[in-house]
Amino acid sequence: MGIYFPPISLGFGKSNMANRNPIDYRDKIFKTMTFAAAMMVLVLIAGIFFSLVKQAVPAISKFGFFRFISTATWDPVHEVFGAAASLYGTIVTTVLAMSIAIPVSIGIAIFMTELCPNFLKSAMGTAIELLAAIPSIIYGMWGLFTLAPIMGDTVEPFLQQTIGRVPYLGSLFSGTPLGIDILTASTILSIMIIPFMASIARDTFNLTPQVLRESAYGIGATRWEVIRNVVIPYSRKGVLGGIVIAMGRALGETMAVAFVLGNKHEIAHSLLDASATITVTLANEFTEADSDIYMASLFYLAVILFVMSFLTLAAAKFLLKEKIES
């Protein structure tokens, strides 16, 4: 390494320490640059939060917090806005998607760590990664053109004929099956988050020490018993962290649900009803909000979504970190 440093002059005085020791000076510049770049993360997060809050101020002062999140009316004509319907849609689609995705992705993780023959392992891994890489708009579009007709024509009428007849539970499947509803949206959402959850679960399963497994096998446990009583308890926190990360994804997903949710600002009682999420409301109405309070209310929704997903992911980070440290 030929160490040659061309003299640099940035207009500082000759007596400056830096000029006498250019090595030190350049290191400082580089360090400052990297520091500034890292600080961008902080600046951006704070910037996003404060600028959204600033834009939302008219709505915050008009509707308050509890009134805003508990009002289900979204009425641009009379300028009454409440987040309850969108919030409800966001939570219901997320919870439903999670309840489909959790068992499937844990199953995938078990298959990949405990059952899969070695030559298949990397192929499976690639496939799951590809599923995660497909853009959400493709999921959404595919949902509208392919999944919605299947749901509306076959799956939903079947559910109505079967579960729909069970008292109480049946009311969840009342209404006309259109395929453009909460159930279809949640299904697409679950397909989207399965790869995230499965790969995190796989990684944490892999962390289980081989010794533990082998000693369980040694006392005659079946494979399933090893998984249930050794692997899963050992990696519980990691899996939980993965679930929460995936939940954060589901909360903030826009395009996969925008096509098939039907944009209805109402608290739906049936899974076959149309609904709206915060993200879909933003995507559809952001460029078209015509009054200032309407616009501010949309920014208010954005603030709520941001805080929700931030807290969720912070919780996930916390869970995963504890796992690694313990």
Partner: peptide, 23 residues
């Protein structure tokens, strides 16, 4: 935009036409 008592919402004339065609 009014507070519709029933139904599903499509985005734009395009969206309504698309839904009306499919539903």
């Amino acid at each position: 935009s009014v507070n519709w008592p029933v139904g599903i919402g499509g985005k734009g004339n395009e969206g309504v036409a698309n839904y009306a065609k499919r539903v």
